[in-house]
Structures are given as structure tokens and as C-alpha cells.
Design a protein around this nucleic acid. Structure first.
Length: 296
DNA sequence: CTTCATGTCGCCCTCTGCTGGTTTGCG
DNA sequence: ACGCAAACCAGCAGAGGGCGACATGAAG
């Protein structure tokens, strides 16, 4: 529904409905409706870029390209605004793409799996997961990768100097990747609704990192304490043996002379001192469980 | 007819962030 | 020596910027 007040304008408009393309490119035989379109096309072949900007060293084949460049890089004018969010952009096609992320529409479907993307490029990128192709190579160590971004990060972290690291604001540790710092924060510094209780004392913690720090304070502590005297030690087994001094229990008995000992080592010493060194390995047994012991 | 602004489709790029397997260091 | 947790690392997808090429429409 084209309307105009001028006859010549109508005539011009009618030509746009015509399939007639009289202007043929002598380099590739492609045909165009107008001489200007052909002219622009030939400029592509000849790499002639008449539309220039003096201040940023860029040049384009058409005025449209220059105009758009101006919006992107100089005026920063974003005429298209999303009605659903605060996103704005220079081009209508970008707005269309943005709208798809609101609607969830995924028109580009993979014919090898269930994946579908919002735009053609993502589908193309996805297809390398089926081909197994790794088109990006590290020029230092020649390791290959599926995406350009991955090789860039690899280059920086393996071969770069002054590699950026991400520091945790809570414990000052440096972590190589931002997303790993996020995981670190989540696992170690986030508040837990259910507190962890220290198994050595009464302390409780809502943050894992604080709990780990606290545990270290128990590391060299003599936390196994005798309830009958002031004796304390770091190992539970030692406390059990110690307690025998209070009970008078002597579980290790020599079968040779019937003499009993509190500890295996004492029985062992007794054997070496008083009995034949050729004695058989199961020469004594525990009075509690009946287990036989070999000492040498 | 030409020029210019604007529109449209498509391509490629980078940045970003999540995921899950692997390696490493510590208790 | 072993097991576990944390960091490392590559794969992969989401989102958005910028431009190539060409079409359309208004105005001179």
C-alpha cells in the first residue's frame, strides 16, 4: 500500500516490483535493478570504499554502512528499545534477536540431536560437537580447542605473563578462573542455614571456611583426656591403654609363666628378657579376645 | 537519474558463565 | 597410602557487538 502525491515517485516505486535487472556486473555476471546498486557491487570487487571517516580510519562501500558504523562507534545512538527489559540497540535485527530470548523461541534446530538455538550462528557452532572438529589451535603448544575463546584463555594462562587471577575477598586466595572463584565463594563462604558442629568442641559454624579454620586449632591439641586424672594425649588408642592403669587390667598374658602385662610391648620385652628366643610366634594370647600374637 | 537515510538478512566475532571430568594437595 | 575436597581446565551455550551486502523509499 504505497501512496504518494507525485507521479514520478509512483513510477519509481512501480519499478521496485519489476524483476527487471538490466545492470549486470562484468566481473561476476550478477544483475542489479539500478546502476547505483551495480556500482556499489563493483566497489566490493575492487575494494573501493568511498565512504570514509577521517577521525577513526574506517571506510565503507555504501553510505548505509558508514551511517551504521557512526551509530555503533561514535554517536552511540540506540534507537531500538526492548519493551520488556532495558536493552537497547542500534539495529532492528538485534532487537528481533533480543525478543527471542524473552519468548524462548528457538528456530534453528539441530538435525542430529535435540538442540535448537535462537540464532543460526549458535547452531553452526554447536555442530562441531558432532563432528569432533577442533578448529582453534594454540600457536605456542599446538593444543587444539573447539572455540576461539577457550584457546584465548588457555594461551593467557599457560603461556602468558602477569596472568590475571581472581582474589577471594574473604580468604585472599587467588583462583585462575572467575567462575571457579564463584564456586569457591559458594562452597566455602556462603551462609548455610544448617550449621556445622565441631566434633571436638561445642563450636558451631554457618560458613564452611570458618569451620575448616577452626578445625585446625584442634590439630595439635591433646583432646583425648582421662576422666580420672590429668592425663591427656592426641591419640585415642593411647588413652585406652592409659585407662588400664586405673582399672588394673592386664590383657597380655605370657603362656610360659602366666605373668600379665598392660601393653603388648611390655610382654614383648618380658619375652626377650626371660624366655627362649626360639619360642613359637603364637606363644602368648590376649586374655580378652584369645588372639595369638607373634613377637618376632 | 542520483544521493542519502534507513531497513533487512546474514555472518562472524568476543565476552561471559556454567558444567563436569581431571588433577592436586592435605589430613 | 588413601580418600576427599578444592582448584584446574576444556567443552559448550547464551548474549550481544560489529560489519558485509544488498534493498527500499524519499528527496533533489
Amino acid at each position: 500500500t504505497f501512496t504518494t502525491l507525485s507521479i514520478s515517485s509512483l513510477k519509481h516505486h512501480l519499478k521496485t516490483h519489476s524483476d527487471e535487472k538490466r545492470h549486470v556486473c562484468h566481473l561476476c555476471l550478477k544483475a542489479f535493478r539500478t546502476a547505483t546498486l551495480l556500482h556499489n557491487h563493483v566497489n566490493v570487487h575492487t575494494r573501493t570504499r568511498p565512504y570514509k571517516r577521517s577521525d577513526c580510519d574506517t571506510a565503507f562501500v555504501t553510505s548505509g554502512e558508514l551511517s551504521r558504523h557512526r551509530h555503533y562507534k561514535h554517536t552511540l545512538e540506540k534507537r531500538f528499545r526492548c519493551s520488556l527489559c532495558k536493552y537497547s540497540c542500534v539495529e532492528a535485527s538485534k532487537m528481533k534477536r533480543r525478543t527471542r530470548s524473552h519468548t524462548g523461541e528457538r528456530p534453528s534446530a539441530c538435525d542430529l540431536c535435540s538442540y535448537a538455538s535462537k540464532d543460526a550462528y549458535k547452531l553452526k557452532r554447536h555442530m562441531v560437537t558432532h563432528s569432533g572438529e577442533k578448529p582453534y589451535e594454540c600457536y605456542v603448544c599446538h593444543a587444539k580447542f573447539t572455540q576461539s575463546g577457550t584457546v584465548k584463555i588457555r594461551m593467557l594462562q599457560k603461556h602468558g605473563e602477569n596472568v590475571p587471577k581472581y582474589q577471594c575477598p574473604h580468604c585472599s586466595i587467588f583462583i585462575a578462573q572467575k567462575s571457579d572463584l564463584r564456586i569457591h565463594l559458594r562452597n566455602l563462604h556462603s551462609h548455610m542455614a544448617v550449621a556445622i558442629k565441631c566434633s571436638y568442641c561445642e563450636a558451631v559454624f554457618h560458613e564452611r571456611s570458618a569451620f575448616i579454620q577452626h578445625k585446625k586449632t584442634h590439630r595439635n591439641e591433646k583432646r583425648f583426656k582421662c576422666d580420672q586424672c590429668s592425663y591427656a594425649c592426641m591419640q585415642e588408642q593411647r588413652l585406652i591403654v592409659h585407662k588400664q592403669t586405673h582399672t588394673g587390667e592386664k590383657p597380655f598374658t605370657s603362656l610360659c609363666c602366666n605373668k600379665s602385662f598392660q601393653r603388648e610391648q611390655l610382654l614383648s620385652l618380658h619375652f626377650r628378657k626371660h624366655h627362649d628366643s626360639n619360642i613359637k610366634p603364637t606363644a602368648y594370647e590376649c586374655s580378652k579376645c584369645g588372639k595369638g600374637y607373634s613377637l618376632w
